[in-house]
Amino acid sequence: MTQRILFVCLGNICRSPSAEGVVRVKAAQRGVNLNLDSAGTGGWHAGEPPYGPMQKAAKARGYDLSGLRAREVTEGDFGAFDLIVAMDADNMANLRRMQPEGGAEVRLFTDYAPEGSGWTEVPDPYYTRDFDGTLDHVEVCADGLLDALSR
């Protein structure tokens, strides 16, 4: 069965599209068939491509985010996906408020970080300006997620 995974951040222009793009590439390299998407808890950027500096940093590592477009998470996503992955505690709280009974499992992306990393969130580079640091987190968590799915 194909796993359906939705990555969620605040505006869907940095972290969640990066997670979608990185997991897409890493899953393909492992031969894992996934149905992936990303969304934001807010709709301010709906229809926009990922933030330019985030795209540039991702492209330098071999991840093309240019075809992605921002959208807002909907209640229907809880039935359309098996797993919804939040980038931080605020995103998680917003998702929990929307989550219907019996919907998709909701987890933090950092739940898939190595034990002892101390990571509790994927930093938002829109504010920190550390696009490479965010990608470091995303790549490590992506590997952890894919390892968990293969178990």
Rank of each mutant, 00 (worst) to 15 (best):
M87T: 07
A60H: 03
S16F: 01
R107N: 05
D143N: 14
G116V: 03
R151H: 12
I13T: 04
A58G: 10
Q3V: 00
E121L: 09
V8F: 05
S150E: 14
I13S: 05
E139F: 00
P123W: 12
W44C: 05
M87I: 01
L146E: 09
D124A: 08
A113K: 05
K26V: 00
A104M: 11
F81K: 11
N12E: 09
Q99A: 15
L149C: 04
R30L: 11
Y126G: 11
I13C: 08
G118T: 08
T128W: 02
R30H: 06
A60K: 14
Y51F: 15
K59V: 03
D82L: 13
L65H: 05
E121A: 15
L34C: 04
A39D: 04
S66V: 01
D90Q: 13
W119E: 14
L10V: 03
D111M: 06
A28R: 15
R129V: 00
G11K: 05
T134A: 15
L36E: 07
F131W: 03
M1G: 08
F81M: 13
Y51Q: 13
F109A: 13
P123M: 14
T134S: 15
A89K: 15
G40W: 07
M92F: 10
F78M: 07
V22S: 11
D147L: 07
M98S: 06
D143L: 14
G31A: 10
V140D: 06
A57V: 01
D132S: 08
L95S: 08
Q29L: 15
P123E: 15
L145N: 03
V23W: 09
E101H: 12
E139M: 13
V32N: 06
D82K: 12
A89E: 15
E72S: 10
T110G: 11
D90W: 06
E48F: 03
L68G: 06
V73H: 05
G67I: 02
L34E: 02
E121P: 02
N33P: 00
S117G: 11
